[in-house]
Design a protein around this nucleic acid. Structure first.
Lengths: 132, 132, 132, 132
DNA sequence: GTGGTCTAGACCACT
DNA sequence: GTGGTCTAGACCACC
C-alpha cells in the first residue's frame, strides 16, 4: 500500500489517509481480510505521528471499512463493506451538490460532467490488474 | 435569494454561503449583473458576523463569480463566469475522486453513481422557472 | 453540571465523562439546547487534559446526544435524542447479558434484579426536581 | 461447553471467557463440581494464548466460581457460588447505571427496560433443558 | 509487539 | 475564545 500525502493540502492528514485507504479498497488493491500496517509502523513509514494514523484508523473502523482483530491486528473488513444507507446517500449528495453547481456555473455540460465522473470511476476500478 | 445555513455543519459558514450563491448562479436564480445584498445587510439578515459574509464575498470575487463596485455594490459578474481552467479541473477531480472511491467501495455501480449526479444536475438547472 | 470522576476506575476518564453527561440528560438536569462548557473550561474545571474532554464530546456528538453549534458552541441536541435502533438494542443487550448472568449465578432472583433496575431508573429520573 | 469468542470485540478475550463460563453456570449447563478443560486444552481448542485462558481462570477462582486442584484440575465450585456481597452489589449497580441512563435518554420506558432484562433472564435460565 | 489512553504544548481556522 | 488538528512522549492492557 503506497500512501501519498500532501502536507500542504487543506485536507487534514488523517482525512487524506482515510481517502487513500478507501480508494485502495475500491480499486481492489486492498482486499477483504487483508492486514493493514500497525499504527506505529505506518506512522513511521510515512513520517507522521502515530496519533494521526490512529485517528484515520478509528474513523475507518467506525464506518466499518476496517476492524481491529485481537490476533491479526488491523484488517480490511473481511465480511462486508459499509452499506449504501440513507445517511450515506444524504452525505454523498451533499458533497456532490456544490461540485455540480460550480461546474454548471462555469458552463460545463451535463455530458462533460458525467464523463469526468465516469473516467474517475474507471481510473479507480481498472487499476493495474497485477494485483488480482 | 434565500440562504439556508446549517450551524451544525462541519462546513464553515462562509463556505456554505459561497456554495449557495454559486448554486444560485447555476440555477439561474441569480443572473449576470444582478445585485447581491451588501455585506452589512446580508449579515444582519441571516444573523451572522460581518467578517463571515465578507470572507465569502472575497472568495467569490477572487474566483470571478461576482464583482464588487464601490458605488454599485456587489453584483453577479455581468460579463463572464469563471472559465473551466486546468486548475479548476484539477480541483474538481480531486474533490470528486474520494466521493467516487467511497461509492465504489460500498458497492455502488457506475450507473447508479452517474444517475445520482445527473439527478443533482437536473435538480439544480430545472429549478422553478418562475425566475426566467 | 457537576462531574464526578474516579481516577482509579478501570473506566477511561472520557467514558466516565460520556456516562455522566448522558445521565445528566436522562435525569433532566441537562435539557435540549442547553450549552455545555467548552472543552478548555471543562478540562481545567475538572483538572484533566482538554483532549480527554474533546474525545468525550466527539463520542457524544457521533451518537447524536450533543452537537457543536458554530455560534452557540457545544449544546445538548435541541431537536432529538438518538433513536432506539436495532444496533443500540443489540449493544444494550450485550452489555446487560453478562450482568444478568452473574446475578443469576450468585443466586439473585428475577424479582430482586428487576427491583434493582427499577430503583436505578427511579434514582435517575426522579432527581431533585428543583431543576425543572 | 461451547465457547464463542468475538475477536473484533472491544471486550478482552479473557473477559469474554469469564462471561461465558459464568453464563454457563447461570444457565445450569455447568453444574457445581463439573470439570472444566485444562488451561492447555482449552487454549488450543479455541485457538488462543495459554496466558489468556490462565487469566480468565484466575479471575474466576478469585471470585469463587471455580476451584483449581493440582490433581483434579479445574472444576466449578462444588460447594457454593460467590455471595451477593455489598461489594458485588456496588459493582453491579455501577455497571447497570450507565446502561439505564442511556436507555432513558433514548426515550425507553421503565416497562420496556424491565422487559428487556426479564427476557434476558429467561433466555439464560430457560436454556434447553436437556442439560438437566 | 499491538492498540488504547492520557498528558502537554502548539498552531490554525472560524466567528 | 472556540473547536480541530498535529506532534511528542508516556504508560497500560492485551496477546
Amino acid at each position: 500500500m503506497i500512501i501519498q500525502l500532501d502536507m500542504q493540502s487543506e485536507l487534514p492528514i488523517y482525512t487524506q489517509l482515510v481517502n487513500q485507504i478507501i480508494e485502495g479498497i475500491a480499486s481492489g488493491r486492498l482486499k477483504p481480510g487483508e492486514p493493514l500496517p500497525s499504527v506505529r509502523s505506518l506512522a513511521s513509514d510515512i513520517g507522521i505521528n502515530l496519533h494521526t494514523v490512529n485517528k484515520a484508523y478509528t474513523l475507518l473502523k467506525q464506518e466499518g471499512f476496517i476492524l481491529v482483530h485481537r490476533q491479526r491486528g488491523v484488517v480490511i473488513n473481511p465480511d462486508s463493506m459499509p452499506e449504501i444507507t440513507k445517511a450515506y446517500m444524504g452525505k454523498m449528495r451533499g458533497e456532490l451538490r456544490p461540485i455540480v453547481a460550480e461546474a454548471i456555473s462555469r458552463g460545463m455540460s451535463q455530458e462533460q460532467l458525467l464523463q469526468e465522473m465516469e473516467q474517475i470511476y474507471q481510473e479507480i476500478t481498472q487499476t493495474d490488474k497485477e494485483y488480482d
